[in-house]
Design a protein around this nucleic acid. Sequence first.
DNA 1: TATAATCATAGCGTATTAATAGGAATTCAA
DNA 2: TTGAATTCCTATTAATACGCTATGATTATA
Lengths: 132, 132
Amino acid sequence: MMITTKGRNALKVMIDLAQHNDGANVSLTDIAERQHESAKYLEAVMGPLSAAGLVLSARGKSGGYRLAKPAEECSVGEIIVAAEGPLAPVSCLYSDVPCENAANCLSLPLWKELDEVIMNFLNAKKLSDLIK
Amino acid sequence: MMITTKGRNALKVMIDLAQHNDGANVSLTDIAERQHESAKYLEAVMGPLSAAGLVLSARGKSGGYRLAKPAEECSVGEIIVAAEGPLAPVSCLYSDVPCENAANCLSLPLWKELDEVIMNFLNAKKLSDLIK
DNA sequence: TATAATCATAGCGTATTAATAGGAATTCAA
DNA sequence: TTGAATTCCTATTAATACGCTATGATTATA
């Protein structure tokens, strides 16, 4: 599986934030209740999103999260990548140790193209497209 | 990862078969040697390809495998699907137990589109495109 | 100062994957 | 008819990733 529940839940949370995007902080407790998820688990989901600068977080009482930029400018691609890391469809791509046969591998160009096709699609989709 | 080494090796073997597609049977021992893989492991790779009708197999001495149809008519998509099963980028798709929230899931249409984008790309690529 | 949050870290059970192993069945050829 | 070459079948193992839970520390507001 290329996009795991981690990425799916990240998108779920971002959609929820986009639907309650009135400038106020939205707490994980609220999101968890609406989305039927454990708030504790969502914490793990938010970390990377926050680190990537996709959401702004505020600690303490009446804290929570909110979108760092308008939903029209936030692509599904950056959400998924933030949550899961580069989602290469094949482990050859983005590998620490490149395949020693890469130079004469007949498949590698194919995988690169596939990766581009996927990322182009996901980057073109914006959060605002999903909540219509 | 969406396409695992099983699928990658399946494609590798199919490329090798396409490069030695003179009507004679090609044994796994030969392929394994050329591709630096264990022949035993490749056996496991061939099973699904044979079951899917992508290759023809002949047992016994001077047996082996050969392509069931010209490389121009064999798509990368069918090879990968034969080797790995439906490669849904997200587990929601092609799941035995559909998500009970599917009816009002805002992400599901996105995942379906993504799956189409991927399969359209892979089905358009033919084995002959890779060996040029 | 009490409370409501985010942040950090560790752990566990399950499933998947990659790869190996041993042998059975089949076919051809000498 | 025997032997060698080959595909087929079924386990098994080791490693890894994933989903999720749990515990507590830190931070900021009311």
